[in-house]
Amino acid sequence: MINNTDAVRLLDRKRRNAFIVPTMNAGNARFGLPSVTTHEKQDLPLSGAMGKASSLALGLALAQPNKKVMCLDGDGSLLMNLGTLVTLASKAPKNLYHFVFDNGAYCVTGGQPVPGAGKMDWVEMAKGAGFAATFSFDNIEDLTTGIDQVLDTPGPVFVHLKISPEIENTPVQFRQRPRRSVQQAFKDVAGVVAGR
């Protein structure tokens, strides 16, 4: 399995100026992308609108076809919006990279298993939905050597990452909050788009 922070650190290092739309553990303020990002103003973390990070990333990818957009989705989140696999594959933006952080659990609610954990095959689902290419990694070494090929492949690309669960049981009000509000994140990305 891949450590959550190791995964987001590597993806940030390899992003090559891409926009990144992270959610749930990938967007966690303490151990997700916000804790390691080098391009914060190009990050668009989504915590509201459950399950819709990939849809948000699709819109951004269609609007900015000359820039890569990487969605760092959660398995529980993607399960809430499974139709998005077909929507993405149907619209087929070449600049969209959909990573699913498969930790098998609803980590932010205490670690309950997601439906189908250990049974479903994410890569087969993405292939069946019509993604142009799919990849799967279950250790950081292979991800480190394979990520360039992933990002050189024309999208839409689906990438399954087997991630160690980082379960949070601290009451929500005591957890580390994001440094930026979601409104500020949208303003920052809009500013990057406008060249400000």
């Binding site: 609108a49 849809s55 269609l62 609007a63 919006n81 139709g83 809009a190």
Partner: peptide, 24 residues
Amino acid sequence: IDLVPVCREGETMAIAAGLWVGGK
């Protein structure tokens, strides 16, 4: 005008948000 068909309506607002922040 580009048509973006979806599988379920809740996707539409999120896709529209991405398009909007992307300048569309």
